[in-house]
């Protein structure tokens, strides 16, 4: 999955608001999402399509109802690329410090 498309999908406050709504309550229909937004149904449909394309929203059909789910897996890829790496180094530094301190205790 191309990361550009994830960032483009996130670079819009209405789309971020849609993700916020799904974060609060997952599996909502278009109608339920529209109730909370000051936007036309067509605009919401368009934004959801962009989020789906970026795999930030996953869709499940239940009968004739289309349910929308927040899918954080592409965000995890982004996290790992930049943040995860730095955190690992910090943890490594702490581990080294701990080992040294414990060695001092023994000597």
């Amino acid at each position: 999955m191309d990361m550009d498309i994830v960032f483009k999908a996130l670079a819009d406050s209405s789309r971020r608001q849609l993700l916020d709504l799904l974060y609060q309550e997952n599996g909502r229909t278009l109608g339920e999402l529209c109730e909370h937004l000051d936007m036309s149904r067509q605009a919401v449909t368009k934004h959801l399509a962009v989020l789906e394309e970026a795999n930030l929203v996953a869709v499940v059909w239940r009968g004739r109802e289309k349910l929308h789910y927040l899918n954080p897996v592409p965000l995890q890829d982004i996290y790992e690329r930049w943040i995860g790496k730095f955190e690992r180094q910090r943890l490594h530094a702490l581990h080294t410090l701990k080992t040294r301190l414990e060695e001092d205790d023994e000597s």
Binding site: N26, G27, N55, A58, V60, E65, Y69, N71, V73
Partner: peptide, 14 residues
Amino acid sequence: MTSPKPQFVYVTYI
């Protein structure tokens, strides 16, 4: 009666 809606859905393309 429809089945209850899933609570979490995760998708990844591999």
